[in-house]
Write a protein that binds this DNA or RNA. Sequence first.
DNA 1: ATAGGGTTAG
Length: 617
Amino acid sequence: MFTLKAESPLQSTWTLLENCSNMKQLKQIQAQMIKTAILSEPKLATKFLTLCTSPHVGDLLYAQRVFNGITSPNTVMWNAIIRAYSNSKEPELAFLLYQQMLSSSVPHNSYTFPFLLKACRNLSALGEALQVHGLVIKLGFGSDVFALNALLHVYALCGEIRYARQMFDNIPERDAVSWNIMIDGYIKSGDVKTAYGIFLDMPSKNVVSWTSLISGLVEAGLSVKALSLCYEMQNAGFELDGVAIACLLTACANLGALDQGRWLHFYVLNNGVDVDRVIGCALVNMYVKCGDMEEALRVFGKLKGDQKDVCIWTAMIDGFAIHGRGMEALEWFDLMRREGIRPNSITFTAVLRACSYGGLVEEGKELFKSMKCLYNLSPSIEHYGCMVDLLGRSGRLNEAKELIKNMPMKPNAVIWGAFLKACWIHRDFLVGSQIGAHLVEVDSDHSGRYIQLATILAAQGKWKEAAVVRLKMKNLGVPISPGKSSITLNGIVHEFLAGHQDHPQMEQIHLKLKQIAERLRQDEGYEPATKDLLLDLENEDKETAIAQHSEKLAIAFGLINTKPGTTIRVVKNLRICRDCHTVAKLVSQIYCREIIMRDRVRFHHFRDGSCSCKDYW
DNA sequence: ATAGGGTTAG
């Protein structure tokens, strides 16, 4: 006789639990466990509870119910439920559970404090952290590196980086995690330099060390440095993992570095990096911000249904917005809703921005209203900013003013800036200069505000007043960012600064610019728009100044060095001026070139003499 | 089962 060699129910349930990855499976397993009455088997029950509380699978309410059904939970179970609460929307409940754990006299282990301290971190609860610190010492975990690292982490992220440093210096057996927490801590407290120092001192760095530094550099706006660390990291023998790639893609998005972004995309495909929702979103965002909407669409199209969350839809909608494809942004917004995805407050900034850039005034107003009545989202100051921009741009200055007056919050510099912009576009110089004067007072370390004011004064012929504003800016030592445009050729980035002459091909570039100006004058009756210039110069000098704007230098360079008919891509750090915009349109027609220019906030696609922004920016 | 990640107005 044969007997089937059946696995014991205990063992088979264990295997099922090991391979379980979602709540539905978990509930099925639970049904089976109840049937076979092995939920009372401690090892299985523990495993089951840790799954219920794990960040990927878990469901807190469900976990709490399961936990309530256990008569005397062991340490691991208490840890699991504390962890679940520390990651939840109400981390303070972790403290309550910890109280109960204390009164049940279950011993601690080295995992208990890290979870509890995570709740402190999520609540920025320094006082509680200090109390826990006392307990750590009292209960004999004073040299446990897990507990100490968790304490370091709270202090480092709750404004006590110096105290964290003191602790760090005194931990005898600090590990890589301790070092990495310090790197991240300095970065989050805005001290990239010290973070870099710690990184350099660290004896054996790992992928997290490199990535923490890279992500800090990206956050601090030092994306060029972040990309160079990507190569250093690989030379040091580290592979890029998903987290590193997400950070680096953001760096490319910030810089408009399409070539490096594409390289990272290839890396993902060739090295089996999982395109999860974060990487998918980072890729889409990178292509959007580097001006390649078609590739962004392709990446989106390849994602599976459950990877398409509200973030990635928002990235696409924002993409259509900044590329001047307002109608498509609205269509995608509808598509998203039909997929059952609920828009969040960021989605609304994207879709309102699309309406604003696309001149879709009525649609924008409807959407703004729908935030509250359909989605129960209260518009924030950002949304009001979009609406002021939308109304102002389209010439509804009074409506914009009313909206500002009736806003539930105090208008900030951005709101006034949008209103000033509207005054400028619609030639209401008087109100514009009043607002400009106010802005210079409240936003006095922002050079753009002085320039806006000086420009609007100059437009009224008030040269002296304009000069006073510029002098004030100079005397206050407000840092000004010079106009910069870059263009990439065979992987090399060529950067042009307004008025600078230090490129090896400068003579050729100037010759080309002269030719362009001549052709434009002859064929199109173009005259340089010197009126917008605020410099107090003779007309001829103004023409020279305007002719040396960095975007013109970059376009001329592109015309010289790329094949006829190919697209020229330029990235600019400031907004494009009216004259450069006119020239770019005419160049696109006369030289039969598509020019894709990213300015500080959006894209201009110049083609056949017109621009995707419909001259409305 | 403690460390690092994507979308935000002008």
